[in-house]
Nucleic acid binder design. Sequence first.
RNA 1: GGAGAGAUGGCCGAGUGGUCGAAGGCGCACGCCUGGAAAGUGUGUAUACGCCAAAAGCGUAUCAUGGGUUCGAAUCCCAUUCUCUCCGCCA
Length: 423
Amino acid sequence: MLELSYIRENTAEVIERLSVKNIDAAKTLEKIIELDARRRETQRELDDSLAESNNIAREVGNLMKAGKASDALELKNRVSELKVIAKDLSEKLDSIVTEQTGLLITLPNVPHSSVPKGKSAEDNEIVHSEGTMPNLPSDAVPHWELASKYDIIDFELGNKVTGAGFPFYKGKGARLQRALINFFLDNAIEAGYYEIQPPLVVNEASGYGTGQLPDKDGQMYFCQIDKLYLIPTAEVPVTNIYRDEIVKASSFPIKNVAYSNCFRREAGSYGKDVRGLNRLHQFDKVEIVQIQHPDHSYQTLEEMREYVSTLLRKLELPFRVLRLCGGDMSFTSALTYDFEVYSAAQQKWLEVSSVSNFESFQANRMKLRFKDENGKTRFCHTLNGSALALPRIVASLLENNQTAEGIRIPKALATYTGFDLLF
RNA sequence: GGAGAGAUGGCCGAGUGGUCGAAGGCGCACGCCUGGAAAGUGUGUAUACGCCAAAAGCGUAUCAUGGGUUCGAAUCCCAUUCUCUCCGCCA
């Protein structure tokens, strides 16, 4: 959620920057500012009337003590009147605040000045490319064929037991999963991240805090009877640790890493995008989350970007980094780098990581604050990134490393799998 | 799931209708003391909103959450959530 004071003081800039996300916010902003004026006026009237009630109540108390009960009677009536007025004002204030908040949460985060304009993925800016493209034999096949050839991932079995998008990993496939999780966690810990194992379901307030709710609730699995959501990413529970907190500035940067299953309904996806491991309803991901001082968050974003690059280098996968254009960015992000790995057999780039700075957008929703050098309470900046999501890494590892003898496992990973050739 | 007890500031803990945002202690911050530290000692130490250009200051709200009773609620009543104890079930 955008900060009200920021909207109020930089209206034109907000409109201009949101246009990069192809949003025309002028009318909404105007309404929000108008509601804000009414909110403050109503608040003042309400406070005044409550102040008068409090004063009279105190007087009544004094009169009672002095044994002048009859004198108190008239005052009592006045308080009763004020109470009715205050109740009206309070209801009015509630409805104004509700309306204002309702509008505020429809506004996406303002993109960083470096974000290019654009409508779709076509307009993303490639900022970096690295690694050598594999030279595959002519009989190279996509990962879903390799998965069944080596009997390591069973999509049909998943269909039978659960449904589409919930595969079974078997034998060396399961071990490869476990190896990748440990590889990613160990690397993160070495880079100074603190490991967290979060709950896989969260309450409504947490979904709201990181921005999944209310706009994306159809994308999460929901347990109706307990009003709990299956997490779409560890970002949700791990960032919400700090909901309603005032952290010490000396604790910056706060660096957490968490492995979790991620659950996504992916309503509306279809076709070859969901083939094999490309898009699953349940997958594994190691997520890095940082809480940082506003002055340092972009430097941190670059560090996180570099960290993810080192992982892909160790896995010997060719990758490129994209700066997402306004139209392709998420609702909550101010700047996002996507990492894509080349899937040789599918001959396409697969998104394996998304590293974002949310600035104070999530922090404002969550009321995550810190005290700055002047003792002033301010919102923190939050950042996160996948480091990494497993399925598409597995897809490209299988495809890019296929040989006549089997799948070659990169050296850095082989110490975790316990085998360097999957056959 | 059943029965009972409870929820107060960063933490512990007092407070059963009236200047209570809340005693006391711990912690924390700053100062004094010290060669330095500890001990000692002094001061300060919640959050949000509103008024104000801003600071100071003032007002309002907040004692789990939401309602209610009352001139007045941390205190009484109702609902919800959570915690603990016992019983049941159980990885």
